[in-house]
Design a protein around this nucleic acid. Sequence first.
DNA 1: TAGGCCATCTGGTCCT
DNA 2: AGGACCAGATGGCCTA
Length: 206
Amino acid sequence: MNSDSSPSSRASSPDMDHHHPVSSSTQAGKMSESKSASSSSSVESSSSSGGGGGGGGGNNKLKLKKQVTEEEMYQLRLKINGRERKRMHDLNLAMDGLREVMPYAHGPSVRKLSKIATLLLARNYILMLNSSLDEMKRLVGEIYGGQHSAFHCGGGGAAAHPGGSPPAQLGSGFQHWAGLPCPCAICQVPNNPEHVPSSKLHIFLI
DNA sequence: TAGGCCATCTGGTCCT
DNA sequence: AGGACCAGATGGCCTA
């Protein structure tokens, strides 16, 4: 039941950001001992090396500066993490948008497509649409012969529709562009992907 | 319980 | 310098 369908349920736990990476017990703190160790050690090493040296009257000043730098580094890290999180959320939104326009990708009883499945399905769907479009063009060419081939994707001239004058809303300046569907009634094909012949569907997830 | 999927963190690289 | 992008690492959740 789409347990993973809500990125927000898992994602964006902003309170995470309120923990200090060095002392936190959050995911970031628990994760990647080597990573967190390296990050914290980099801070610590810098602090130790920075704080350890010198001596004399400038030491306090140096320490204060070091603390500010660590705090700034932490804030910067939070900022960067937040940006990355937002970026990934935007990516997921785009992925959801892609899922929405994919046939058979949604429905009450259909499990949400994974990202990789969504991309593969989209690719195959586009390929299938292209082949369908080519076949459609071929059939139209067969039916209307040279007439339609003259109008369809014609060489930049005014549309010469086989049935006579072009639809009024198109005007005389309408041009057919290769690869784009023609808005005229003759060229209209159902764009509902669920009308795709089932014989074509097997290529979706191949 | 293993494997798949995901979110997040993090450091590096490239670009503006 | 700062931001965007990327890939690796890690841990959590879910399902077979």
